[in-house]
């Protein structure tokens, strides 16, 4: 009986350890990327459906219902916001890479990233990082060497809770995930989560249009777009700009 207990405990530990995977650290884009000019880049910007409301913290089922009801007015306002400014990112990235001399193809199909097979990491020591999803099939399909994927992660409103007790005011958030993958070996050339969040200037609870939070939302959207482009910039260019100043 005692040994059975030990086995159960050990199995639980193994399970828990297995669940807590090591998070992928950010991978900055190296200047060496720009040296290979004969590579064709595919750019895929996943469409944004609609902003949502995110509850952070320890929220149970009943709390969830209460919090959702309390925030319903703000949530429905945010769900109806015009997010067409996000689509501009596709053109901005295209222009950015064209200006650097890259051969760019904008991919307008839905790549169904979630449905892609997992890629088995060939480098367990993590000296080189690889994308979690297997993107390599797109090399042949689109005739591209590299793929830049950007998709929205958390877009809308977020508020911290302990149960149904709000731990702070809601804030407007805009977070995207981006990764640039070498389709020859699925290696990550760039990997980043880009998040900007803003609290309301002045009161936040101003139904029905929540101007303070809405303003913060669009400011976060613009900041994310700018941030993504900055992270994809050639460092030598950035340095040159600093020197001029």
């Amino acid at each position: 009986m005692r040994s059975l207990k030990i086995i159960i405990v050990m199995l639980n530990i193994m399970l828990l350890v297995g669940c807590a995977g090591v998070p992928q650290p950010p991978v900055p884009l190296l200047d060496t990327y720009w040296e290979k000019q004969n590579q064709k880049l595919g750019v895929y910007i996943q469409q944004l459906e609609k902003p949502e409301f995110y509850m952070e913290g320890d929220v149970r089922l009943l709390d969830y219902a209460i919090n959702a009801a309390v925030m319903s007015s703000a949530t429905s306002h945010f769900e109806g916001l015009d997010v067409s400014d996000y689509d501009v990112l596709r053109g901005d990235i295209n222009r950015h890479f064209l200006l650097q001399g890259s051969d760019v193809e904008l991919l307008m199909d839905d790549l169904k990233i979630n449905d892609l097979a997992e890629y088995e990491d060939p480098n367990k020591e993590d000296t080189i990082y690889f994308a979690k999803k297997d993107y390599t099939a797109f090399k042949k399909k689109y005739g591209i060497d590299h793929l830049l994927v950007v998709y929205p992660k958390r877009v809308g409103l977020a508020r911290p809770y302990q149960g149904f007790i709000p731990m702070g005011d809601p804030r407007a958030i805009f977070e995207v995930h981006g990764e640039l993958v070498d389709l020859n070996n699925n290696q990550l050339l760039w990997y980043a989560d880009v998040l900007h969040a803003n609290f309301s200037s002045g009161e936040w609870d101003e139904p029905p249009t929540f101007p303070g939070l809405t303003n913060g939302f669009y400011a976060a959207l613009e900041a994310v777009k700018k941030d993504v482009l900055t992270r994809l910039q050639k460092k030598a260019v950035k340095q040159a700009k600093l020197d001029v100043k």
Partner: peptide, 16 residues
Amino acid sequence: CLSAGLLLVGCNSTSH
């Protein structure tokens, strides 16, 4: 308490 929670959250509502 649920009502109180709702009230607490909603009490600073302003409209312009």
